[in-house]
Simulated scan of single mutants.
Amino acid sequence: MHFKRPLAEAFGTFWLVFGGCGSAVLAAAFPHLGIGFAGVSLAFGLTVLTMAYAVGPVSGCHLNPAVTVGLATAGRFPWKEAPVYIVAQVIGGALAALALLQLMDAKPGFDVTVSGLAANGFDAGSPSGFGMMPVFATEVLATFFFVLIILGATAQRAHGALAPLAIGLCLTLIHLVTIPVSNTSVNPARSTGPALMVGGMALHQLWLFWVAPIVGAIAAGVVGRVLYSDDE
């Protein structure tokens, strides 16, 4: 594997976490700026949309361990390359969260344990107090459809130039629905970065935001093999 591919994944995942989580802790936290959670949802979608054009030609623009696993399950990506991609994605997400933490530390009165850097969680970690099982089910379902839409949008019969738009809008829609539930993960790398910086409950609950998206991605990969078998 050429080093440029995991490097592209690290850069892309950095942008996703910095842009998406950054919009939550820097802009949505200030009501007079007016972006709200709808603006945060759009920000996450825009990070994927823009990076799909920037690094898609290099690495395929996974930016997400669940996407990598889903594509491998569907036969669209070699399993042997998945660990390198996943490590690069986690590093990119962690560096973005570190950059956000350093930026927010410059703000008077900032407390990372209160802000949370848009960390994901359940029970007390959920924005609306959702328990573990509803959060788990939501993350599985949302990731399933996210990966399935990626498989469909990038199938040979699809309009490839429009794939980034479909994928970015899908991620926006997922955030519009699930931010109140879990702060929206569907991406273990996106969850890992803030959890490492915040620690405590966010780190203790991180396991769910690895297991649930991976389960949903594998299910989507299996279904995708059937739906898009003519494209293989």
Results as ranks from 00 to 15, higher is better:
H2P: 06
F3N: 00
K4V: 11
R5A: 13
A8N: 06
A10L: 13
F11G: 04
F11S: 08
G12S: 07
V17F: 09
G19K: 09
G20A: 11
G22F: 01
S23Y: 10
A28L: 10
F30A: 13
F30W: 13
I35V: 15
I35A: 11
G36W: 11
F37L: 15
F44T: 14
T50S: 15
T50R: 05
Y53S: 12
P57I: 15
P57Y: 14
V58I: 15
N64P: 06
N64V: 11
N64E: 12
N64L: 13
V69I: 15
A72H: 10
P78D: 13
W79S: 04
K80A: 15
A82I: 08
Y85K: 10
Y85P: 10
I86S: 02
I86M: 15
I91T: 12
A94N: 07
A97P: 11
D105H: 11
G109S: 13
V112L: 05
V112G: 02
T113R: 13
T113E: 14
S115T: 09
L117N: 10
D123H: 06
A124I: 14
A124N: 12
P127G: 10
G129Y: 09
G129T: 09
G131I: 00
M132A: 04
M133W: 15
V140T: 01
A142M: 15
F146H: 04
F146V: 04
L148N: 05
I149K: 01
L151E: 02
Q156Y: 04
L162G: 01
L162R: 07
L162V: 09
P164Q: 01
I167F: 02
H175M: 02
H175C: 06
V177R: 02
V177T: 07
V181H: 00
T184G: 00
V186M: 03
V186T: 06
T192H: 02
G193K: 04
P194Q: 01
P194N: 05
P194W: 06
P194E: 06
L196K: 02
G199H: 11
G199L: 08
G200Q: 07
H204K: 11
L206I: 10
L208V: 12
W210H: 10
V211E: 03
V211G: 01
V211P: 00
A212D: 04
A212F: 04
P213V: 03
I214C: 01
I214S: 00
I214G: 00
I214R: 00
G216E: 07
A217P: 06
A220N: 07
G221N: 05
V223H: 08
V223S: 02
V223R: 01
G224A: 09
R225F: 09
D230F: 12
